[in-house]
Amino acid sequence: MILTVTLNPTLDKFYWVDELPLCLDQPEEAILIRSERSLMSAGGKGINVSTFLACHGAETIALGFLAGHTGQIVLQDLLAHGVTANFVWIPGETRTNVTVIARGREYHPLLIHEEGPPVPEEALRIFLRKYERMVRCAEYVVLGGAVPSGCPPDCYRTLVRIARTAGARVVVHAGGEPLVRAIEEGPFLVKPDVRAELQLGDMPVSTAQQIVRAGKKVVGQGVGACLISHHVTGDILVTGDGVWELEARVPLSTFKNLVGADDALVGGLLVALLRGEELVEAARYGMAAAMASAEVEEKLCLDESAIRRELAHVVVRRGGAG
């Protein structure tokens, strides 16, 4: 079983529009943008990974915090996708993240992200007890996404420690300080979220050399493997055995929705690991899942045959620069 943790879930709402105004500053009147199509789905990194896994036949349980009517919608969507849910309910309203995608500019959507409700101390205590209980049955644990207010910045570190003690392999799919703290406990794999800042702790990760250097440092600290995005269609995997550069040879013009592609990568990687594939090949399958997801309007590509077709475009090179 794969346990996923999403401390700050979201209801993802997507709007497709013909065009966005070039400048939103100083409008002379209200800006009306009509949307020809919209979609909404349960979101947050861990939740997306669980949705991907459940739709690919893997047993998965999603944990975290939900609140209010939006939380109910998130829960219903998860259950409808076959995900087992075990959330702690908190006051307030689960956040909504809006993505506006303009025709021809799919690669540069307009994003509006809410902060999410704070987690009360009592709810955090209930969550930790739940987590300690559930983690005993888990083979892998995925800790995904932003840490809401009310949760301490070292909470991922605590969760990694508990999971490792229980014998589970932990994937940390997050960014910022929570990730840096979690690294100290030596998780199985880290997938740094570098969307907000091309930085891993105090190390820049803009170029391939910088990524390899940061990856090697993280692996040196006891992490099993580090997988970092390098451009949209490339990832670099660093382990104790070496460095691999993964590249998807697909034109950017085929992308329809990039939101969730990273989570499909983690989901695909785990599906392949559960099938018994080696880490490098599993990362290749994950990248194919990410590309297939970016090429559909829905957040995640849940069609295994489409991922298999994409696999033909993903090449792996042994690297080592840095």
């Binding site: 349980i61 829960l75 259950l79 076959g82 995900v83 087992t84 849910a85 075990n86 959330f87 309910w89 009592e122 209930i126 007890r129």
Partner: peptide, 18 residues
């Protein structure tokens, strides 16, 4: 429904109602 919402023995009455 694969919803595992549950409470523990020491959960308070107030929290259960909530």
């Amino acid at each position: 429904r694969r919803d595992l919402t549950s409470v523990e023995l020491d959960t308070t009455v107030d929290h259960v109602i909530y």
